[in-house]
C-alpha cells in the first residue's frame, strides 16, 4: 500500500508552534495525517491546533506510541532535535530544514544508522503516503495509486507528481531525499522499499547532477522487477557551480548529467529528457501492465 508510513502511522511534530510548523500542521491535518503530539520547549501541557504539546521528545513518547516525527527546526538546532528523536527510539525522522552544517549532518545520519532509524532529508519536502503526509508537499499534488516516487528536489517533484495526479495516475508514496551532500536516505534505500511494496507498479526517480546517488541507484535497478522512469535536472549546469542544492555540483569531472543518464539507461531505466515526458512514459507502462 505504501512505504515507511501509512494512514495508521502516529506522527509527532518537533517545532510545531513555529511559523513553518503551524502552517504545515494545518496542511497535514486535512491531508489525513494522524498528528498525535507536538514538541515545543516551554509550552508543554498546552494544546496547539488541537494537538497536545510536550517540552521534550522523551516526554511525548511517554504519552504516545510515535511512528514518525517531522522537524520544523532552525538549522542551528537541528542536530540536537534529530538526535533527541533518534535516542527516543523514533524510527522515521523527517528533517525539512535546509542549510544544516554538514558536520552536524554526518553525526545525525551516522547515529541514525546505528539506531536503525530512517532519516528523510535534510533539506527536503518530506514524504507522503495515502492519508499520511510528513512535510510540505502541496496536498493537491498527491493522489493514491500505483506509482512510487523518489526524488532529490521538491518543486520538481510537485511538477511531476502534480502532472501524474492530473491525468489520474496516483502514487503509493512520494519521498524526498533532499538536496544536501549527506542525505539520510538514498535512492537505493527507497528503491528497495518500492520493490518490496506490493502496491507499487512503477517507480519514478527524480535525480539531479552531483554526487553518485543516481549511479548507485542504476546498479540496484538492474536487479529490480519493476520498471523505473527517471528524470534528471541539471543538464545545462556548468561544472564547478553549485545549483542551489549543496549537493548539486559537478566537481572534478564527477556527477555529470551524461554519466548519470548513461548509467541509468544501461540499467534498463527509461530516462525522460523533459519533466512532462515522465508522465507519458509512466502512462505507457501502466497501460501495458
Amino acid at each position: 500500500m505504501a512505504i515507511l508510513v501509512d494512514a495508521s502511522s502516529k506522527v509527532l511534530i518537533q517545532g510545531i508552534t513555529g511559523k513553518q510548523g503551524t502552517f504545515h500542521l494545518k496542511q497535514m491535518l486535512p491531508f489525513g495525517t494522524d498528528v498525535v503530539a507536538g514538541v515545543a520547549p516551554g509550552k508543554g501541557g498546552g494544546v496547539h491546533e488541537g494537538v497536545p504539546l510536550y517540552n521534550t521528545v522523551y516526554e511525548a513518547c511517554e504519552h504516545h506510541a510515535i511512528d514518525a516525527t517531522v522537524l520544523f527546526i532552525p538549522a542551528a538546532y537541528c542536530k540536537d532535535a534529530a538526535l533527541e528523536a533518534i535516542e527516543a527510539g523514533i524510527k522515521v525522522i523527517v528533517i525539512i530544514t535546509e542549510h544544516i552544517p554538514v558536520q552536524d549532518e554526518l553525526i545525525i545520519v551516522n547515529r541514525a544508522k546505528l539506531k536503525d532509524a530512517v532519516i528523510i532529508g535534510p533539506n527536503t519536502f518530506g514524504m507522503a503516503s495515502w492519508k499520511c503526509k510528513l512535510g510540505i508537499l502541496p496536498n493537491i499534488a498527491f493522489s493514491p495509486g500505483p506509482v512510487g516516487v523518489v526524488a532529490r528536489s521538491g518543486t520538481l517533484t510537485y511538477e511531476i507528481v502534480g502532472s501524474l495526479t492530473n491525468i489520474g495516475i496516483g502514487q503509493t508514496s512520494v519521498v524526498g531525499l533532499g538536496g544536501d551532500r549527506v542525505p539520510g536516505s538514498t535512492f537505493v534505500d527507497m528503491l528497495k522499499r518500492f520493490e518490496a511494496d506490493e502496491a507499487t507498479q512503477v517507480v519514478v526517480l527524480v535525480g539531479e547532477i552531483g554526487g553518485n546517488a543516481e549511479e548507485e541507484a542504476a546498479e540496484y535497478i538492474k536487479t529490480m522487477s519493476k520498471p523505473v522512469v527517471a528524470y534528471l535536472a541539471g543538464k545545462s549546469a556548468p561544472p564547478g557551480k553549485r545549483m542551489g542544492h549543496a549537493g548539486a555540483i559537478i566537481e572534478r569531472g564527477k556527477g555529470t548529467y551524461e554519466g548519470k543518464v548513461q548509467a541509468l539507461t544501461a540499467a534498463g531505466a527509461q530516462v525522460a529528457t523533459f519533466p512532462y515526458e515522465v508522465v507519458e512514459k509512466v502512462q505507457q507502462l501502466i497501460r501495458r501492465s
Binding site: G154, L156, T157, E208, G234, K235, S236, T273, F274
Partner: peptide, 17 residues
C-alpha cells in the same frame, strides 16, 4: 527565476534544449 533548486535546473535545461 523559479522556485526550488530542482525546478530551476529543470527550467534552465528546458530553455537550453
Amino acid at each position: 527565476m523559479a522556485n526550488g533548486a530542482g525546478i530551476t535546473m529543470g527550467t534552465l535545461d528546458m530553455v537550453q534544449l
